[in-house]
Amino acid sequence: MDTVYLDNAATTQMDPEVISAMHQSMRSNFGNPSSTHAFGRKAKAAVETARKSIASLLNVSSANIVFTSGGTEADNMAISCAVRDLGVTRIISSKIEHHAVLNCVEFLDTENKIDLQFVNLDQDGSVDLTHLESLLAEAPDSKTLVSLMHINNEIGNILDLKAVGELCQKYSAYFHSDTVQSVGHYEMDLADLPVDFIAVSAHKFHGPKGVGFLYVKSRNHLKPLIHGGSQERELRAGTESVHNIIGLQKAIEIAYTNLEEDSAYIKSLKNHFMDSLKSEIPGVRFNGLSGDLDKSTYTLVNVSIPLSASESDMMLFQLDLKGIACSKGSACQSGAQLGSFVLNEVYGEKLDYPGIRFSFSKFTTKKELDYVISTLKSLALSKAN
């Protein structure tokens, strides 16, 4: 077997139907959507049709969808605009958020624009909702934004969006969630969820890189972060990337059309992978709640094999040599050599063995997983001896 790709939490393989839709768009929708001639109007119509399609899948109005360059821009836009335009003076987040959120809130804190507080996590890395409520109750007169991701990108823990949103409503706080790992993989009825902002990225569900969107519950009081034009109803200047938006539309339509079938298939793969690892490698551990399908996403598992840090790093290298792609954690932190900041935060000194993240997709096969399991077993036993 030449290659096995198990880093879908970082990015997914583009669906052939998405590529076809984008190719057709590039050939026929090359006009500038802001131009008033027929070519421009055609491109504009394609963008607005995509917006309406995406909104309908999430059960919201198309007016609430703002196209961005991806999840990072959407996260930054929600957080920064909440501070600048909505008068937010306090942000409550967690220390295991994606760095698109962490770096943004820490910058605002450093600039003395907000009071930043972190909610406690339990022993598995889940948000302590009792502590969150106590933080919200501490300063009822402060305008507060709670920013907590729906699914953690490294350990897969799932946050109860409705419970958090209801707490935020109780204390008149805004609620932002990075849903990059969940939209396209889970049903999302935003009309029923008490959330003010969500961030989405197409390349996490077999769409193109470089495009995503921000859902904004109410756009009346927001101003653009990027200036220069009146695109996106004056919320984001810049010529729309029409072909990417078409790719996003196609990818999310495919994802939700086939959600039940694809999710059942991927769950079966994850179960097989975990069961095989437990039987083949003594002492294997699943980090966070990633080993519990009821409490974590079906798309990934974070595994610790009884090896030292140096041996674990060497295993990643050896897996790569054998054509197996996986990771220690977020691709956005791949240049860092400090290991997973999420696992370090959750386990601290109790982190005896580093974790390796394996993430699956509808294109993953059982044959590929069996090859990975056999390879892992061989490497683990060779290190143990």
Score class of each variant (00 low, 15 high):
T3R: 13
D7P: 01
N8P: 05
A9N: 09
T11K: 11
Q13T: 13
S20N: 09
M22D: 09
M26A: 15
M26K: 15
R27K: 15
S28C: 14
N29H: 12
N29E: 13
F30G: 06
S34K: 14
F39N: 15
G40S: 10
A43S: 13
A43I: 06
T49S: 09
R51S: 03
R51Q: 05
S53N: 12
V60M: 04
I65G: 05
V66R: 08
E73K: 07
D75G: 00
N76G: 15
N76L: 07
M77F: 10
C81Y: 00
V83M: 03
I91S: 06
I91V: 10
I96Y: 03
V101N: 03
L102I: 08
V105H: 06
F107C: 14
L108I: 00
T110D: 13
L116D: 08
Q117L: 15
F118I: 06
F118T: 04
V119K: 07
V119C: 11
D122A: 04
V127P: 02
L135K: 10
L136Q: 11
P140Q: 05
K143Q: 10
L145T: 03
V146I: 09
S147E: 01
S147A: 15
H150N: 09
I151M: 06
D160N: 14
L161Q: 05
L167D: 00
Q169E: 14
K170T: 04
Y174H: 07
T179Y: 07
T179M: 12
V180W: 01
V183M: 02
D189K: 12
D192P: 01
D192W: 02
V195L: 02
A199C: 07
S201E: 06
S201Y: 01
S201D: 06
H203I: 10
K209R: 11
G210A: 05
Y215W: 03
V216N: 01
V216K: 00
S218L: 09
N220F: 02
H221I: 09
K223E: 11
L225H: 10
S230V: 12
S230R: 14
E232S: 11
E240H: 14
E240Q: 14
V242D: 03
V242I: 07
G247T: 04
I252R: 00
T257C: 11
T257Y: 08
L259A: 00
L259R: 09
E260W: 09
E261K: 15
S263I: 06
S263R: 10
A264H: 07
K267D: 09
S268D: 13
I281V: 15
V284M: 05
R285A: 10
G288A: 08
L289K: 12
S296K: 01
V301R: 03
S304H: 01
P306L: 08
E311P: 07
L319I: 00
L319C: 01
D320V: 05
D320Q: 08
D320R: 00
K322N: 12
G323I: 09
C326P: 01
G339D: 01
S340D: 01
N344P: 03
G348K: 10
K350A: 13
Y353D: 11
I356K: 08
R357D: 09
F358H: 06
F358N: 05
F358L: 10
S361L: 04
S361K: 06
F363I: 12
K367R: 13
E368G: 11
D370F: 05
K377Y: 03
L379R: 06
